[in-house]
Each structure stands twice: as structure tokens, then as C-alpha cells.
């Protein structure tokens, strides 16, 4: 395990300390917790947005704390949902009186922990609403299972719902926007290498030199299918097809695109993927209004990437264009 860390047990705490020191003009930590708050939290007169989840997805989620996006981010251990008490502390500290909106990625652990926090907060009279993001099309959706995972598309929720909240919208309206994003966003990822959780020290799976895992999540879980690596264009095509053939009808519409690096894949390769994605969408009469290429939702040092499409209307376009000023996302 080649990592630049001290003790595995201290990784999350030390990372948060280093983050706070790097971005002290944006965030401050909430003493005794793993919560990073907007420096000026609680911001009155607006709904507060909180997201979080296991660590290892940096810059998610603390990187999105700031004007126009999140009011607080709650970090769990590596790939492990934070506990209800931490989320509850975040809710209390971020609440500016207009209610709190939780952005939850759809994992059993995240949903349960955040919902328990929500129950604690509601018991204290705080209005809380939530959205559960499930953009990953890798696994078929089914009412018998816990449904699909939330991956890079979550960042679009932060951006759009965050902008809506910044406009002074009500908790109900923030929720509506978040749900609109979720309803119109689909993603799919691929991994070329596994990643290693510091505490375990072992790779999450093993791949041959010429293999990739298609349909990968962001926690080092194995994907849906193991295949021979093909060309960038072919891989992008495979992911795109899954995204396009899913339940959102992207045909003839406007979309925002995100090509998200999972950790170790160089920016040059992400741009090569983007080149294909743009061409393919253009050829299929889908108009790209916004493009995001970079590391937005990572999986430690995993090599690979995901492609996210969000179908946009006038409201979503305007919310994407709205001002955002956070460590990892500025507009």
C-alpha cells in the first residue's frame, strides 16, 4: 500500500485539519466533529444544504462548501457513512432558521444514518427535508432492492439546489429542484485499477494488466462486468450507451455533461474522453450546454472515470450558471 499518510486511523481527522488550513477563507470546522461548515454559517434567510458521506471521495463533499452550494459537509471514515450524531451536529450548526436540506447518496448506510439524524433534528423542531441521489445506471433499478447508487451526479444536486437556496427559495422549492436534478441525471463509471482503503491496506479487487471493471461505484466495490480494456472512444461509447438508453429521454434535448475522474486517471485522458462524448452527443442531436471535466467525486487512488448527463431546462441552466464560490467548484 503506497500512501502518503501517518496512521491509518488518523487519516480522516488529519485530512480534515489540512483541508481547513488550506481553505480557511471558505470553511471552519465544528469542534469535536467531522463537520466542516461554511465560514459564515449559519447563514440566515436561506435554506441550509448539507451533504456528506464516507471519506475518500475528495473533493466531495467539503470541497463544495461555500457560497451557492453547501452549508456543511459531514465526513465519515473512509467509505463509511458518517454517524447520526455527526450529521445532527451539522444540522444544528448550519440551520439558519429556514430549514435544512440533506443531500444523501443512495447507500443503505448513508440513508439510515442521515435519516436518523433527521429524526433527531425534527424532534428538536428543525425543519428538515432530503433528497436521495441515485444517478448510477450500472445496476438495473428495482423495487426489490435498495435501488441505484448515488455517484458523480450528486455534484449537480449540490450546484443546482445550492443555487436555488442562495436565491432565497423555500425548503419545499429547494427540494423540488433537487428532485428535478435527480430525475434528470444519469451516470456510469469504469475502473482500470482498484483502490485501497488505508485501514485495510489491501486492494479492493484485482484486475489483470488488460482488464477493466465496467459499472464501478465509488467505494472500490467490484463493478458489473469485467472486460478487456478497449480504446478511450469505445469505453466512452459503452458508458454513454448505458446512460442514453436509460429512462431519461435525452434525445433532442439540452444536457450538462460531467466527465469525472475517479482519482488516478490523468486530466489528459479525461479530456480525450470528453472529446468523444461531445462528438457523440452532437452527432445525436443532443446539445451540450455545460461541460465539467475533472475530479469531482473520486474513489481514493482508483484509475477510471464516470460520465454523467443531466437533462436541463431553463431553470437548471440558470442554476448551473449562478454564482458558486467553494474550494472545488467556482462559477
Amino acid at each position: 500500500m503506497k500512501k502518503v499518510i501517518n496512521q491509518a486511523d488518523n487519516v480522516v481527522r488529519e485530512m480534515l485539519e489540512g483541508f481547513e488550513e488550506a481553505h480557511a477563507d471558505y470553511v471552519r470546522s465544528l469542534e469535536g466533529t467531522t463537520v466542516l461548515l461554511r465560514k459564515d454559517a449559519p447563514v440566515t434567510g436561506k435554506v441550509s444544504l448539507i451533504s456528506g458521506g464516507g471519506s475518500g471521495h475528495e473533493p466531495a463533499h467539503a470541497g463544495y462548501v461555500g457560497e451557492g452550494m453547501l452549508d456543511a459537509a459531514v465526513a465519515g471514515e473512509m467509505f463509511t457513512s458518517p454517524t447520526p450524531d455527526q450529521v445532527f451536529e451539522a444540522i444544528k450548526a448550519a440551520n439558519g432558521g429556514e430549514g435544512v436540506f440533506l443531500v444523501i447518496k443512495n447507500y443503505t448506510g448513508d440513508v439510515m444514518n442521515f435519516e436518523m439524524a433527521r429524526e433527531l433534528a425534527e424532534a428538536e423542531g428543525i425543519s428538515v427535508e432530503q433528497v436521495v441521489v441515485n444517478d448510477d445506471v450500472a445496476v438495473e433499478d428495482s423495487s426489490f432492492t435498495n435501488g441505484r447508487r448515488g455517484i458523480a451526479g450528486t455534484v449537480f444536486v449540490h450546484k443546482a439546489a445550492g443555487a436555488k437556496a442562495a436565491e432565497g427559495a423555500s425548503l419545499e422549492d429547494v427540494k423540488k429542484v433537487a428532485e428535478k436534478v435527480v430525475a434528470n441525471t444519469r451516470s456510469m463509471g469504469v475502473a482500470l485499477t482498484p483502490c485501497i482503503v488505508p485501514g485495510s491496506g489491501k486492494p479492493s479487487f484485482t484486475l489483470e494488466e488488460d482488464e477493466m471493471e465496467v459499472g464501478i461505484g465509488i467505494h472500490g466495490e467490484p463493478g458489473i462486468e469485467r472486460k478487456k480494456i478497449t480504446s478511450a472512444d469505445d469505453i466512452a461509447e459503452e458508458l454513454l450507451q448505458k446512460v442514453l438508453q436509460d429512462s431519461v429521454d435525452f434525445q433532442g434535448s439540452e444536457v450538462a455533461v460531467m466527465v469525472n475522474g475517479l482519482g488516478a486517471t490523468p486530466a489528459s485522458e479525461l479530456y480525450i474522453v470528453n472529446r468523444y462524448v461531445q462528438k457523440r452527443l452532437r452527432d445525436n442531436d443532443i446539445q451540450v450546454t455545460h461541460t465539467y471535466v475533472g475530479e469531482y467525486m473520486t474513489s481514493l487512488e482508483m484509475a477510471g472515470f464516470s460520465i454523467t448527463l443531466m437533462k436541463v431546462d431553463e431553470e437548471l441552466k440558470q442554476l448551473l450558471d449562478a454564482r458558486a464560490d467553494t474550494p472545488a467548484f467556482r462559477k
Binding site: E77, F79, K202, G217, H219, G220, E221
Partner: peptide, 19 residues
């Protein structure tokens, strides 16, 4: 602990032993 983590690596995210 290690065994639980191995089990979770096979079909989960490899943190159950740690958790």
C-alpha cells in the same frame, strides 16, 4: 477483523471489519 474486511471486499466496500 481482517476476515470481515475480506468478506466485505468481495461483495461490499471492504470496511466492515474496520467498522
Amino acid at each position: 477483523k481482517e476476515y470481515l474486511t475480506e468478506l466485505d471486499q468481495a461483495i461490499g466496500d471492504g470496511d466492515h471489519g474496520l467498522n
